[in-house]
């Protein structure tokens, strides 16, 4: 398994030498960023059992904060990121404390986090003086990195390809480390049974909050880069459909695995561009695939692979 993942990474590392098309590169870049979102979401959803609808909000808030700090206040991109993450963590702690303190059940939790997320979207949409409202903000600046060989500006598709690949790997490793630690053990217990966890002496509230905060912060990290690659930020970054897309990616890939969401995200990002159909049928096909995946392979692609392996 680990071997296969490393192999995949290797393929990803050399792939740009073979990709000549800018649009394929763009799909890969968006795919990596979506994958990073999906992996971080799965920490909260798959490994802690909390259906958070706040993920898009964490992503969007961070994208806005970084963009505003850089374009309006002239901050350095790399300095703006920690600030944005700090804000996202504070927001996540606030929302999480409320939800977990009141022990909201799974669906209630989803709706309340969605409510907070919508309120944040409406604030972003209407706070014209700072966020430029519905028009969003165009980001012309590209971040650059100081290296011993001179400053490296992320402007070409290839540079973004590697930046986002690194981003994905970082998010992946953070999640892996968290899950491999004592925290991961506690989360597993909580996912299986809240009450049981409590009787075992686990501070359920604390660990849920930790998972929610880490996952949201990682989403914020993706958001920080996203706006600068896309060239614009707009209120749709915080929208409910984006949150649902992430859920679909995770389910397609497989909930109980770390690599599953990566596969799911890459496939769902590429899908609309691979199938050339009229507009109506493309939507219908998207829906049909979603239904098919859920009903025929409820554990996602990874579930299918592992069960094949066990059978063989």
């Amino acid at each position: 398994m680990r071997f296969a993942i490393l192999g995949g990474l290797l393929v990803a590392l050399v792939a740009p030498w073979f990709i000549t098309s800018d649009s394929v590169l763009a799909i890969a870049i968006y795919g990596f960023m979506s994958a990073a979102l999906a992996v971080s979401f799965n920490l909260i959803f798959g490994f802690t059992g909390q259906l958070s609808m706040f993920h898009a909000a964490s992503f969007g808030v961070s994208a806005y904060v970084v963009t505003i700090l850089v374009t309006s206040y002239g901050w350095n991109f790399w300095l703006a990121i920690p600030c944005a993450l700090l804000l996202v963590v504070v927001l996540a702690l606030f929302v999480g404390t409320i939800c977990f303190r009141f022990k909201l059940k799974e669906f209630y939790f989803a709706v309340v986090t969605m409510a907070f997320s919508e309120v944040l979207r409406l604030i972003t949409l209407n706070w014209n003086s700072v966020t430029n409202g519905s028009l969003g903000i165009t980001v012309v600046d590209k971040p650059s990195l100081w290296t011993p060989w001179g400053s490296l500006t992320f402007s070409s598709g290839i540079s973004w390809y590697y930046v986002t690949l690194v981003l994905l790997v970082v998010v992946y490793i953070v999640c892996q480390r968290v899950l491999a630690s004592w925290i991961g053990q506690c989360l597993a217990a909580i996912r299986l049974n809240d009450l049981l966890g409590e009787t075992l002496g686990i501070d359920v509230f604390k660990y849920k909050l930790i998972s929610f905060a880490i996952g949201s912060a990682l989403a914020g990290l993706v958001g920080a880069f996203y706006g600068f690659y896309a060239g614009f930020v707009e209120p749709h970054y915080l929208s409910i459909p984006l949150g649902l897309d992430i859920v679909a990616m995770v389910l397609l890939g497989g909930v109980n695995s770390l690599i599953g969401p990566v596969i799911g995200a890459l496939m769902l990002t590429a899908l609309p561009h691979v199938i050339e159909l009229s507009a109506e049928f493309r939507i219908a096909l998207y829906g049909a695939i979603l239904i098919f995946v859920i009903l025929v392979m409820p554990k996602g692609i990874m579930g299918l692979i592992t069960s094949r392996k066990n059978a063989a």
Binding site: F107, V247, G287, A288, I294
Partner: peptide
Amino acid sequence: NLVNGLLVSIGLISVFEAL
């Protein structure tokens, strides 16, 4: 199964809207 139900119904929305 809350999540599966949610996703199936979302898939269904796409199909109906497209039709």
